[in-house]
């Protein structure tokens, strides 16, 4: 039984954390995106400014706002904007 969510990191978020994904433990009763991000920022302060403009996806679907509930086994992706051409 997994007790964690998988956080996928892209572009500048990946560089800020130094990994393409991290597994983050959450209570079996679930948590929220907001709480997850707060925990991540505590461990990786350099992520904070990047999160402001990033879009988040939960299990492959974009979520608006940060109230979305998440639970063990969910996959949360952090997509910062980038503009290279």
């Amino acid at each position: 039984m997994t007790r964690s969510v998988r956080v996928l990191l892209f572009a500048t978020a990946r560089e800020a954390v130094g990994a393409a994904s991290v597994d983050w433990e959450v209570p079996a009763s679930g948590s929220t995106v907001r709480a997850l991000l707060a925990g991540l920022v505590e461990e990786h302060p350099q992520l904070e400014p990047i999160l402001k403009g990033s879009r988040l996806a939960c299990n492959g679907v974009y979520v608006r706002g940060r109230r979305a509930r998440i639970g063990p086994g969910d996959e949360i992706a952090i997509h910062p904007p980038y503009s290279g051409g």
């Binding site: 500048t12 400014p49 990047i50 402001k52 403009g53 910062p80 904007p81 503009s83 290279g84 051409g85």
Partner: peptide, 18 residues
């Protein structure tokens, strides 16, 4: 709908920097 506003200057490196 994806990114409502541009990010603040300096947050994302340009191709030349990155």
């Amino acid at each position: 709908c994806l990114y409502p506003e541009p990010p603040p200057p300096g947050l994302v490196p340009s191709c030349a920097e990155g």
